[in-house]
């Protein structure tokens, strides 16, 4: 069985790594190459680059940094943000990305998932889902990169995850919005429900703040755990996290 994947997520804007409070502007924190090299050296199993400058304005991602990253590293990485068409995905993959991750564009036009899976294979196609707990259950949110545009997508998370997998998504990144950035832990129950309901790998996202949170996500059936703040702020060194997970009986790559 594969090792539990630790996946740092880097926000990118204008070809730079940025950090900031969601919805409230971002600060440049350095070059993509230096951050990438740091995480590879730390033992990250995979990286996600989220081009936050791309999606809300309807632009696609800039390709030059993707090729620089692809040249630099020898672990897999995916690119999210601003991929709305088959040709944009083709360009991102041709630049050297291993996977493309689509979110709002898949909600606008679910056939996009099939088109990408047909041409590039399911293993290249990740569907990101922003899920919010409502009194009646978990619902999908759309355009979450912008406070003004963010809205309910009119779908239940579980149904959308199942539809995305049926249409050919090879992986689901389940981002639980209520937990995002607050570091109180992944929404373990929701992650378990989704992981048990789809045949494809599910990556937990949103809420990681302590090594125990990663342990709980993997125990709930997540194939990988994505986090940003705890890694960027150097709150949890990845080697120590993996050592902890191994001590809990979770298989890791070291």
């Amino acid at each position: 069985m594969p090792a539990a994947r630790i996946i740092p997520c880097l926000d990118v804007a204008g070809g730079r790594v940025v950090k900031g409070v969601r919805f409230a502007g971002h600060r440049d924190v350095g070059g993509i190459e230096e951050h990438t090299a740091f995480y590879v050296e730390q033992g990250a199993d995979e990286l996600v680059f989220y081009d936050i400058s791309a999606s809300p304005e309807g632009r696609s991602v800039d390709l030059s940094w993707i090729e620089r990253v692809a040249r630099l590293i020898d672990i897999p990485f995916s690119v999210a943000g601003g991929i709305r068409t088959r040709d944009q995905a083709a360009a991102v993959l041709a630049a050297g990305a291993d996977k493309v991750s689509i979110n709002s564009p898949a909600l606008e036009r679910p056939e996009l998932i099939e088109e990408l899976a047909r041409d590039f294979g399911s293993q290249c196609v990740v569907v990101g889902i922003d899920s919010l707990r409502e009194p009646d259950g978990y619902i999908v949110k759309q355009y979450t990169g912008s406070a003004a545009a963010s809205r309910a997508a009119g779908r239940l998370t579980l149904e959308w995850a199942q539809e995305a997998a049926a249409r050919g998504a090879g992986e689901i990144v389940l981002n639980c919005m209520a937990e995002d950035g607050v570091r109180h832990g992944y929404d373990v129950g929701h992650t378990r429900t989704v992981a048990e309901s789809v045949p494809v790998p599910v990556i937990a996202s949103g809420g990681a703040g302590a090594p125990e949170h990663f342990r709980d996500a993997f125990a709930a059936g997540a194939s990988g755990a994505l986090a940003a703040t705890v890694f960027h702020d150097r709150l949890i060194p990845i080697p120590e996290l993996k050592e902890y997970l191994a001590s809990c009986g979770i298989a890791v790559r070291r």
Partner: peptide, 12 residues
């Protein structure tokens, strides 16, 4: 159960 497809990740 517990073995999703695609087989995705680092296997020994």
């Amino acid at each position: 159960a517990g073995r999703p497809v695609p087989h995705m990740g680092w296997s020994p």
